[in-house]
Design a protein around this nucleic acid. Structure first.
Lengths: 300, 300
DNA sequence: ACCTAACATGCAGTATGTGCATGTTATATG
DNA sequence: CATATAACATGCACATACTGCATGTTAGGT
């Protein structure tokens, strides 16, 4: 069964005549007659009633007319999509960005890359840290944009990846400006309401392993609410629910606007590196080009 | 673009190798290699990455893999439908049956017809009386199975149709066995709870024009609930909501089981003819054959 | 009955597809 | 690094499929 054959059948249905359909399909009447006969032999049934002149569609052919048109359109669309997709494939890469960076950092980075490479199609995927590395390993992503605590390794052996620093960020404690007095008092009182991250995500682990051990030993952490998304943490803090540790890249605009208050003078912060990671070894020219731009990019 | 080509592409995707796909497609490796090349020439893009051994799908080919499988399945289905449709067109008719007959009478009739004509495909449509005749006139149905009140005409001029009696039925008053005493008492009291049919359907009209005029003049009808379906009327009666007039062909099993009680000794019933109707004039051999069987069929 | 339109078929030539043999290159192993 | 093997590509000869021209057959109109 061929697209050509579907179109032949539709041409007869539309013109009501083999001869006219033949003209339309740029064949002589005799060749077209034989082609229709070949189609019928392939299918195994008569598609047209030749006992009448001009021919008529058999009932079953008429019943399937719409389906034939649909399949023909689908096949044409497939060819078109394969063509269009190829053009894009030559100039496309997939970037996996950690959730915490997706809202405030990575868009700016992509904008900078595309300003220099306007023919490059970048597909951005947002995931948590573990998923970003999983996508690298399974080659679903070409490059990952993730945080790294200074002095700590990425979760994949260094031999398998190549990393480059893009900038620095900071996990800082913030609270609603209107609740600043209450929070400072709570610090004195020894029990701090906190907006927490789940223990199994990167930022949850940074809080537990890096930030909380630096708290005054007499200060207890009272978890009020938990979210994996830094954007949500910012909003919860603004609602006066407690202190949230969020990337400065995300919170700086809120602090500048006066919505949030930076509590770094009383509570510990944590520096973070923003890094780009890819698998070691050969890569396509598009990926290499984008990687070079990233390595040369030093922005915050 | 051909079904064969789609299947070739899928075979490579599934086996991950030209050689294996070639085996699966019953070609030598060299012929298959050239066929894939031909497909790529037709589409205009490379579908596979040959720089690696065994080959890998290009990203765009992978993206379209499901669509390719879908179109392949659609084309196979089309061929199958054209084959099946042809067989069916030669031996098929459409029968429109009135709702009230569809549940209890027509299935038995069709079973009897198919026992004699096992090659005949019968498509059964259920509709109200008006719709049955509309389907006849518009040739969406070949034969209609409907009730007729004795002495009254069908709603279409006799010149345009041909009718034959199939049997007789009876519209009888029933109620739940447990409510029989209450209903008999209500008849005495002069106010009868009734499960009604809409005024614009056949049975609603039969009640108004034939049955209710026969009630004792001092007995008032108190409509409790209304439904167009006789099956629903039976169920409502069994729930002790009132008296329902339903075809004996439908209710006889409930009466025999003791669920319903026949009130014909106190309330009027109405005889109905069950008829087959078709348009006058020439008809296909399948329709003529079925019609002859119906004319010879005298069942209740 | 006659004429014309419309589909079918014979014949010769051209186009397309295949298997066998062989060439080229990626990948694994010692 | 050298060698062997798997896996894809290409040359050649043959087979199969498709087409236009010329002609045959039949429905439909006058």
């Amino acid at each position: 069964m061929r697209l050509e054959w579907l179109e032949d059948i539709l041409a007869v249905a539309e013109t009501g005549s083999f001869s006219e359909a033949a003209d339309r399909r740029h064949l002589t009447q005799s060749a077209f007659s034989r082609r229709i006969r070949n189609i019928e032999d392939y299918v195994g049934v008569q598609l047209f009633d030749r006992a009448r002149k001009p021919v008529q569609l058999r009932a079953t052919t008429g019943d399937q007319r719409e389906q034939i048109a649909r399949l023909a359109a689908g096949l044409r669309q497939l060819v078109e999509d394969l063509r269009r997709g190829d053009r894009r494939a030559l100039n496309r890469i997939v970037i996996a960005s950690q959730h915490a960076l997706t809202a405030a950092f990575t868009p700016g980075l992509i904008r900078a890359v595309q300003a220099r490479r306007q023919d490059t199609y970048i597909r951005l995927r947002s995931a948590n840290l573990d998923e970003c590395f999983a996508q690298l390993l399974s080659r679903q992503a070409d490059i990952a944009i993730v945080y790294r605590v200074p002095g700590q390794d990425h979760p994949i052996e260094a031999d398998y990846i190549e990393a480059t620093a893009l900038g620095v960020d900071r996990l800082i404690p913030v609270c609603a400006t209107g609740a600043a007095g209450r929070m400072r008092h709570a610090v004195q009182a020894g029990e701090l309401p906190v907006i927490a991250y789940p223990a199994n995500v990167f930022l949850g682990q940074v809080l537990e392993r890096v930030v909380f051990p630096q708290l005054d030993p007499g200060l207890a952490v009272d978890q009020q609410v938990e979210t994996a998304l830094t954007l949500a943490a910012v909003e919860l803090a603004a609602e006066e629910l407690g202190v949230a540790w969020v990337p400065a890249s995300l919170s700086s605009r809120y602090v500048a606007a006066g919505t949030l208050c930076d509590l770094t003078d009383q509570l510990p912060a944590c520096d973070l590196l923003i890094t780009a990671v890819r698998l070691a070894g050969a890569s396509g020219s598009t990926e290499a080009g984008v990687w070079d731009l990233l390595a040369a990019h030093r922005g915050a």
